[in-house]
């Protein structure tokens, strides 16, 4: 399943492309059963993940590749989305990728925290047999927002 994503794109590491990605993710999240606040949280998490790659992984270089893949998922009556983002950044220990303490009021360091709050699951890993990092995220729709119609 992982290799047959119905939506898979490669983008350059340019911040001004993020708005187009947000639009695409919001539309697909809606098609796959996530509405309202749930869809907004997926958009936010993907945006934060991509910005982290550009800012921290590629240190602002705008000509490096980022791969984004999306799948619809379902657990019982609940539908949702799986997101995988991969890059060619210098690998880091996934255990070191943590959000900072929110009690400290200072700029920066919020992206990872926001991703973990926005999604049901966020998992970092090193890419297998390739340079770079991978983040996989999932979110199911809230029970109250689960639409009756499937398809």
């Amino acid at each position: 399943m992982q290799d047959n994503a119905p939506f898979a794109i490669q983008i350059a590491s340019q911040p001004r492309l993020l708005c187009a990605v947000r639009d695409a993710v919001e539309r697909l999240a809606g098609q796959w059963g996530l509405a309202g606040e749930d869809a907004g949280r997926v958009v936010l998490a993907v945006d934060e993940a991509l910005a982290n790659v550009i800012r921290h992984g590629y240190r602002g270089q705008e000509d490096r590749p980022i791969w984004l893949k999306l799948w619809p998922i379902q657990q019982g009556d609940r539908r949702g989305i799986r997101v995988v983002i991969e890059d060619e950044c210098e690998p880091v220990d996934p255990a070191t990728i943590k959000g900072r303490d929110l009690d400290e009021i200072r700029p920066g360091g919020l992206g990872t925290h926001i991703m973990r709050k926005a999604m049901d699951r966020v998992e970092y890993s090193r890419r297998v047999d390739q340079a770079g990092m991978r983040v996989e995220m999932e979110k199911l729709n809230s029970p109250a927002e689960a639409p009756a119609q499937k398809g």
Binding site: L44, D47, E48, I105, P107, G108, L110, G111, I114
Partner: peptide, 16 residues
């Protein structure tokens, strides 16, 4: 209509 954590960071800096 939309703000990410970099926008929050900018506002926190101005707030401080």
């Amino acid at each position: 209509p939309y703000m990410d954590s970099s926008g929050l960071a900018s506002l926190v800096e101005v707030f401080k």
